[in-house]
Each structure stands twice: as C-alpha cells, then as structure tokens.
C-alpha cells in the first residue's frame, strides 16, 4: 500500500516534469517580437504615406495586410524550426493554434483596418492583434500574453477616446510596439 507522503512526492515530481516541459515548449516571445516590430513599422509607413499625399489609413491597411502575412509566415517557420531543434512539440495542436490565431489577426486587421471607418480604423489593427494574441494565450495557456493582449486593447481604445484621430493611432502604436517588444524580449530570454 502506498503512503500519502510517497503519493505527494510522486505527484510533485509529475508536476515538476510538466512545468519543465511547458518551459521547453514556450515560444511566445518570438511572435510578440514580430508583431511588435510590425506595429512600430506601421508608424513611419503611415507618416510617409501622409507626407506623399497617399492617405494614412489606406496605406496602413495595406501595410497590415502584407505585414501580418509576412509575420505569420515568419512565425510558422520559427515554430517548425523550434520543434525540430528542441525535439518537443505537437505539430497538429500547434498548427491548429497557430492557424486560428493568424486567421484572427489577419481577418481583424483587414476588416477593421481596410474597410472600417472612424474609430475602428484608428485602433482596428491593434485591436485585431490583441484579439489574436488573446486566442493565442488561451491556446498556449500563457497568462503573461493574455495580460499583455488585454492591456494593449485597452490602450488602443483609450488613446482613441482621449487623443483621437491620427495622433491616437501613432500614440497607441508606439506604446503597443514598445510593450510587445519588451514582453517578447523578456519571454525570449526566459526560455
């Protein structure tokens, strides 16, 4: 018959193995970095378009459609490389999680950034990225990513309500990019 202290010891060992595995699996830093850089890049792209008389929002919408696609491909390649090099990971589950997240971000960025108007155009892409990352956080069970996603969504909407217009997009994009890059670097170093 097994004693309770033995059972407790075995359970804590199992939990410790699980925790180590979760740490080895974690690769949420890279996607945050990619979308942080993309968000940062959207500011000079929009400003350049404005100075050339091409219109800020149409160019931003186009930028996100192309940029998010490139970002999604980069992240997919990173995931595949990580799995091969670390020898751990579930390709099917990861692919499902990744496809769902990428679809949410792309759909959101396209519908809000390109066809939306007024407020939705201003914070649309950031809101779409937040939604995508919230889904990603749920699938990957990462509380840090979920918190970042929610805080950034609040910042995007708040900056529109407080500042408004073009400045709101620029302000929230800069805060957004800084937070994504910071969180991405922290998670990347933690591995």
């Amino acid at each position: 018959m097994m004693r309770s202290d033995e059972a407790l010891h075995v359970l804590s060992e199992v939990e410790s193995v699980r925790a180590r595995t979760r740490r080895a699996l974690d690769s949420s830093g890279f996607p945050l970095l990619v979308f942080g850089v993309l968000t940062l890049g959207s500011v000079p792209v929009g400003m350049t378009a404005l100075s050339l008389g091409a219109g800020f929002y149409p160019q931003i919408g186009f930028y996100w459609a192309v940029g998010a696609t490139i970002g999604v491909v980069l992240i997919a390649v990173h995931y595949a490389w990580r799995e091969r090099s670390s020898g751990i990971g579930d390709r099917a589950t990861r692919a499902a999680a990744f496809t769902a997240t990428a679809f949410a971000i792309l759909l959101g960025a396209l519908t809000l950034g390109l066809v939306g108007d007024g407020a939705t155009r201003g914070f649309g892409p950031q809101l779409a990225i937040s939604g995508g990352y919230l889904l990603f956080a749920l699938l990957e069970r990462r509380l840090v990513v979920a918190t970042v996603a929610i805080v950034l969504a609040v910042i995007a909407v708040a900056s529109w309500l407080v500042v408004g217009g073009l400045k709101a997009y620029v302000l929230s994009a800069l805060v957004y990019a800084a937070a994504l890059i910071w969180a991405g670097l922290v998670l990347y170093r933690e591995r």
Partner: peptide, 18 residues
C-alpha cells in the same frame, strides 16, 4: 514511465533524445 507520459501529455510528442 510517469515522467514520459507527463511530458507527452503536456507536449503532444517528444523525440527520444529529449
């Protein structure tokens, strides 16, 4: 064996070396 199953349950799959 418990460790093997715990890793596979968490990760889905793992290679021999891991």
């Amino acid at each position: 064996r418990l460790g093997i199953l715990a890793i596979l349950d968490e990760a889905g799959r793992a290679d021999f070396a891991y």
